[in-house]
Design a protein around this nucleic acid. Structure first.
Lengths: 230, 230
DNA sequence: GGGACAATTATACGTCCGTATCGGTGACGG
DNA sequence: CCGTCACCGATACGGACGTATAATTGTCCC
């Protein structure tokens, strides 16, 4: 059953022209600090500025729960009781979670700053920090993740369609985006041209691609390279 | 069998698999420091490590001469006599020159580090610096620019082909990469399908595109969006 | 055993594409 | 004045494409 009736140019809902989505689904700030009183103060500061916020003693919950459906950012103390904030950043990265991180530290050094920023930290702030400066950084982080979230969601839709392809359909896709003719694709797979056409047709339907141009844009977004070039 | 012996996806020479190119055309380190003795010491340190290096009192020469044909990087002191290294970084960016910068400073702060790193600095080092650390950073910067240089060169070739198109050919390109049929392109331009075919043919030849897939990859590399989507 | 699905092949029809060949207009510069 | 170039148009042909219709085989699972 095909229920992709209302699709846009690339077969995806047009998120770029739907700011309501990003506004309705507001971001959340995860405050990670093992000092209970400071944590509470940071959380309440966020809330007073209209930002949703929750506190965490450590980052284990956040590392386990990678919920990519909602914009989020992390306010992370560099020096925790039993962990290093920079190592936590590494763990997020190696687990493929690119949630924006705002660092906060009492005893920061320039090498630490370099390391954190090089790995994509949004900010690296020193305690004591101005409220406005901190909130500004968090808002910026949330905006970054809001954009990343919509992009990731689009990408997941495409990845889902891709995974719905059969082996043969996936084969044909690889050659089709290389600009090969049906006849060449068939020869490459050792089947008749007619069969290749059938696979191609099914593939285009499943991918929701209206044209070869559409398909190529989708695959390049998914990082798929042609199996062979014409 | 095919004859794709020495061509890549976009019809350009495969620079990614030609390390000889990056090795033969070695990078150059531009040392910018207004302290003559320190500048000389840094230059000789680079040369002792086999890196080509030249010294500059200020960055005006570098800003004026944007020679993108050769890999380079800049070793920049944050505090110069009459200029701020971070402002120089800004000027490079606003002039479209993305040459990698390694900062060196005696009195650095974390906010300065954040600012520099956020704008793409490769490293932010404090004086006194270990020779190995500095050289490592410079080598990394040169490698970054070597990759950027080849990418830019490829891009320039494509941009050159694009600029060789006539107005009509450029129009047709915009619609063709949207997946429109010749008939639709002709209707869009208010001309006959035959004429549209002619323009398309010339366009494909000038762009060096063997297939629509080729063309789309080129245009996406150039940041060209379809004029209309099918 | 039968239903669902993937993979395969075939014939046939209309459309689209690329190309070749021919011709006409207007603008620009040597 | 004439060559060059951009732009426009037409006819025609072979091949490629998309689609519809139909059929066979094998596998997996209930």
């Amino acid at each position: 059953m095909d229920e992709r009736s209302d699709r846009t140019l690339s077969g995806l809902p047009d998120t770029t022209k739907a700011p309501a989505d990003a506004v309705m689904l507001r971001g959340i700030v995860h405050v990670v600090d093992d000092d209970a009183s400071l944590r509470a103060a940071l959380v309440s500061l966020c809330r007073s500025a209209g930002l949703e916020a929750v506190g965490h003693v450590d980052a284990s919950e956040l590392l386990a729960d990678s919920n990519p459906s909602r914009p989020a950012c992390i306010l992370l103390d560099v020096r925790l009781r039993d962990q290093n904030g920079l190592d936590i950043q590494d763990m997020f990265q190696s687990s493929g979670n690119d949630v924006p991180i705002v660092f906060l530290t009492g005893y920061g050094t320039i090498p630490m700053t370099v390391r954190a920023m090089r790995k994509g930290a949004v900010e690296f702030l020193e305690k004591p920090v101005e409220d406005d400066e901190l909130l500004g950084a968090l808002i910026r982080a949330l905006e970054i993740d809001a954009a990343a979230t919509t992009a990731r969601r689009d990408r997941d839709v495409l990845a889902g369609r891709l995974s719905s392809l059969t082996v043969r359909e996936r084969d044909v896709l690889g050659y089709a985006i290389g600009g090969l003719m049906n006849k060449q694709i068939a020869a490459e797979l050792g089947i008749s041209e007619i069969t290749a056409k059938v696979h191609k047709r099914h593939m285009m339907e499943k991918m929701g691609a209206r044209s070869l141009a559409d398909l190529i844009r989708m695959t390049s977004q998914l990082g798929i390279a042609p199996a062979r070039q014409r």
